[in-house]
């Protein structure tokens, strides 16, 4: 019997990352823009999805994968608000979604009939950050009511996000939100992600956000034409 020290050098989450790549390939093949929505509980993830669908109107067909520890309240909300399709994932206590959960959810979504899929992660600013799901856009949704120091306390999500949507902008004065402090901290962590200030309650900023989102879709025009060609319907 002998003891050996064996060098390996392997990413611990390589298995999750491989599954995420397969999910991304499915989204890409179907011409779907997938958005991983990460926020603290109560920041307004479901409200953002509902209001974004309204702002997009007929310009995009939206599907939603809802990640929650338990229940299906959010799935019912997004379907009532006009989502074309929605699938609920109950993590049973897990604090984040993993690529394998999204992979199984994709079997229940008809991606060919969708343009944008929001994946609403479990409310948490830490754990979901580290698990790739196969999304093309990672969205961080802080809200003014949580305080301007969130980028200092939870730097990683701000560092790795492709876009930051700051909700509850209508409350900023009431909650003493220090805008300069927030922007300075975010820009130290992430120099490139666009920041949208919105209010799901008043509707402020939502149309600019929805327009930007639509522009991130790589080939919405081509896909819409292809679908119309297949169904024989005239263009919108």
């Amino acid at each position: 019997m002998s003891v050996q020290h064996v060098k390996i050098v392997k990413n611990v989450l390589a298995g999750n990352d491989q599954t995420a790549e397969r999910n991304r390939a499915r989204f890409n093949a179907a011409g779907v823009l997938a958005v991983n929505v990460i926020a603290a509980p109560g920041a307004g993830k479901t409200s953002l999805i509902v209001k974004t669908m309204a702002a997009l109107g007929a310009r995009a067909r939206v599907g939603v994968i809802e990640g929650d520890i338990a229940g299906s309240i959010d799935t019912e909300k997004v379907l009532a608000a006009g989502a074309c399709d929605a699938v609920q994932i109950n993590t049973g206590g897990n604090c984040h979604l993993e690529a394998g959960m999204v992979q199984r959810a994709l079997d229940d979504l008809d991606l060919d009939r969708l343009d944008i899929v929001f994946v609403e992660n479990v409310g948490n600013l830490v754990c979901p950050t580290h698990w790739a799901l196969g999304e093309q856009l990672k969205l961080c949704l802080p809200s003014t009511a949580e305080g301007h120091d969130k980028p200092i306390k939870y730097p990683e999500i701000f560092a790795v996000s492709d876009v930051i949507v700051l909700n509850k902008i209508d409350l900023s004065e009431l909650v003493d939100f220090d805008r300069d402090f927030f922007y300075k901290a975010v820009r130290a962590l992430n120099s490139h992600a666009p920041i949208f200030e919105i209010s799901c309650r008043t509707g402020a900023g939502l149309s600019a956000w929805a327009d930007w989102l639509l522009n991130q879709h790589p080939h919405l025009d081509t896909k819409t034409e292809r679908l119309h060609h297949l169904s024989g319907a005239p263009g919108m």
């Binding site: 002998s2 003891v3 050996q4 060098k7 390996i8 050098v9 611990v12 901290a185 130290a188």
Partner: peptide, 21 residues
């Protein structure tokens, strides 16, 4: 001045294992 974040500190790697054979 407020600097820019570098790529350091993101790793999560198995560097090596010690085994009994």
């Amino acid at each position: 001045a407020v600097g820019q974040l570098t790529a350091d500190g993101t790793e999560l790697l198995i560097e090596s294992i010690e085994i009994e054979t």
